[in-house]
Design a protein around this nucleic acid. Structure first.
Length: 601
DNA sequence: TCGCACCCTG
DNA sequence: CAGGGTGCGA
């Protein structure tokens, strides 16, 4: 038996990039004075390009806009809906009132909370990366093309069936006339949105104007055709509108993933990544402070990682090797940490959230109806019902952190008596979705716990903001947040106990070189941890966790073997090191449907 | 003084 | 895993 060989940690199984993304370098090793995680600033100076997104956005969007405008104008059919200032003509000529009502409501979910209109109005989209925006424009263009085809076909048919009096026929029904913009059907006065819709954010307005303008209605359609046309258009509008919403929302909801898309250059978003809570929490609602995005971005470095897994242990009686590559349902590049998830998954997820539907495809009635106060023990007192949330900006900012749009939507819907009317439409859209399972809960269920445990593989010290971002289906309040924080505290406790135990074991086994201590997937320590955090073994533990575990083990080993454990607070330096090694969490864990899945399993 | 994380206990 | 006590930094 060769103790040396059995200890080796095959390089191939370790993070291929020890320095990132699992444990990125570049972070100042300087620790902040205290030992409290909440005050770990992790502050990084925002990347300049990020710090001044306006330029980036404006420059890019202008070019895009110009191109799209050209295309659209070339089509001679659709007006240019891209100009944010443009109003929209969304009314259906068929039944203008109803249609308007419906569409207005349909757009509600994507509204952000009322914001002061102003130059910052459009900042929502501003956060979008080129890809997202491109996607957005693509969608818009596709919509226009579709509309064009439909209308052309309809008109041809129309013409073939005999000319009527266009002016007469079209007049009373057309949006343009109803809105007093005779020759510019797209230039509808935005003011025709009243009530709740008046506070549409600029983003929303932009989106609507992009997507929901209505070309002129073909005249003299036979009833069947007209109906078909109407249905078609409705479906198209709904689908595309929702898709656009999802894209936009993705930008808001997922600054992290977005940053991933943009590349790793934007590392500066961590300032609020953990610990310190942005009281505004406003990253999503109030995009301008881009640097306050609750993205943890890169994990800090400045930690002796070089001696991790890639090193060749000389012996290790306790950590024999028998590589085991168990494919799990867990997707993603096994050596990459974090893993990224195809954006469409998340978009769909978001879309389903947007629709505010429960697992059965029904409205989350509990949310709509249950306005009972929660958080009885909270000093925040009871949270207000949805309708009153608006009045509590501080609470709102907290709550909307996770679901800025959906919550607003639901909040509004709860105030709208005729909400049921659009259920069918939304259902139609929802039916196409792979998953439509979000219902916001006030409490935490076993699925949440399970998911939290899996998250522990990536983050040992999650901030409340991170938790909010990764549990979009949880209605966070102080109580819930502290419960979840407590969970992680318990996780850490178990983790550190195991580490200490195995470190002592290794010492008593005569191990002298901490570098020989490498946690592999078949080690006892790993099994203990995996049993605790991943009992069902249905999740492939990321390699980065193994590295963290190895490092932790080594730190404990060093401390113990040098007698530091006589100091009552000897573990604190270790905690400090480990707390800096959180890595990005795969986007898939952010999905609330993942929670549902965990619950089912 | 407050909030947080750790520690201990059940 | 949750509750309560404790210590520590801000």
């Amino acid at each position: 038996m060769d103790p040396n060989s059995s200890l080796l940690s095959p390089p191939s199984r370790a993070c291929s990039h020890p320095a990132e993304p699992c444990m990125e370098g570049g972070r100042s090793p300087t620790l902040r004075g205290g030992g409290r995680h909440s005050s770990f600033p992790w502050s990084q100076v925002p990347n300049s390009s990020l710090a001044d997104p306006d330029w980036f956005w404006d420059e890019h969007i202008q070019a895009k806009r110009a191109r799209v405008e050209t295309i659209v104008q070339g089509m001679c059919l659709s007006p240019n809906p891209l100009m944010p200032g443009n109003a929209r003509a969304r009314d259906s000529p068929c039944c203008p009132e109803k249609s308007r009502e419906r569409k207005r409501k349909q757009s509600l979910p994507t509204q952000q909370t009322p914001r002061k209109p102003g130059p910052a109005g459009n900042h929502g989209s501003r956060k979008g990366g080129p890809r997202v925006r491109e996607q957005l424009h693509l969608l818009k263009q596709q919509l226009r093309h579709l509309q064009e085809h439909i209308l052309l076909a309809a008109e041809r048919r129309d013409t073939a069936q005999g000319p009527g009096d266009p002016e007469k026929e079209r007049g009373p029904q057309s949006v343009k006339q109803r809105n007093g913009h005779g020759s510019r059907p797209w230039a509808v006065d935005t003011d025709h949105h009243r009530g709740p819709s008046r506070d549409l954010s600029e983003v929303e307005k932009h989106r609507e104007s992009d997507v929901e303008f209505q070309p002129e209605e073909p005249r003299f359609l036979p009833p069947g055709t007209r109906a078909l046309l109407e249905i078609l258009r409705k479906e198209l509008m709904g689908a595309v509108s929702q898709a656009v919403d999802s894209v936009l929302q993705k930008v808001f909801l997922d600054p992290h993933g977005h940053l991933t898309q943009l590349g790793r250059s934007f590392q500066g978003l961590v300032s609020e990544g953990r610990g310190e809570t942005s009281p505004e929490g406003g990253a999503y609602r109030d995009p301008p402070p881009l640097s306050t995005l609750p993205s943890r971005a890169q994990a800090p470095a400045g930690v002796p990682l070089g001696n991790l897994a890639l090193t060749k242990p000389l012996d290790s009686p306790r950590y024999p090797v028998s590589p085991r590559m168990i494919p799990k349902s867990y997707q993603g590049p096994p050596t990459n940490c974090p893993l990224t998830v195809p954006s469409h998954i998340q978009e769909n997820q978001i879309l389903s959230q947007l629709l505010g539907q429960g697992p059965n495809g029904h409205w989350s009635s509990s949310l709509l109806q249950d306005s009972s106060p929660q958080s009885h023990s909270s000093s925040e007192a009871a949270l207000p019902p949805w309708g009153a949330v608006k009045l509590r900006p501080s609470v709102l900012s907290q709550q909307q952190h996770a679901l800025p749009f959906a919550s607003t939507r639901l909040e509004r819907l709860s105030l709208l008596p005729s909400v049921k009317m659009e259920q069918g439409d939304l259902q139609a859209v929802a039916d196409v979705l792979p998953f439509s399972s979000v219902h916001i809960q006030e409490g935490l269920n076993p699925g949440h716990l399970k998911k939290a445990k899996l998250m522990f593989f990536f983050t040992r010290y999650p901030s409340s903001n991170l938790l909010k971002a990764y549990f979009p289906d949880v209605q966070f309040n102080r109580c819930i947040t502290s419960q979840m924080i407590k969970w992680f505290s318990n996780f850490r406790e178990f983790y550190y106990i195991q580490m200490e135990k195995f470190a002592r074991q290794a010492i008593s086994d005569g191990v002298t070189n901490p570098k020989m201590l490498v946690v592999l997937r078949d080690s006892e320590l790993f099994r203990a941890l995996n049993m605790h955090y991943n009992k069902g073994n249905d999740f492939e533990v990321p390699d980065c966790f193994l590295e963290i575990a190895s490092l932790t083990l080594q730190e404990f080993f060093r401390a113990i073997s040098t007698g530091k454990d006589s100091d009552p607070s000897w573990k604190k330096p270790i905690y400090k090191i480990i707390s800096k090694l959180d890595s990005d969490i795969p986007e898939i864990l952010k999905s609330s449907s993942y929670t549902q899945e965990q619950l089912r399993n």
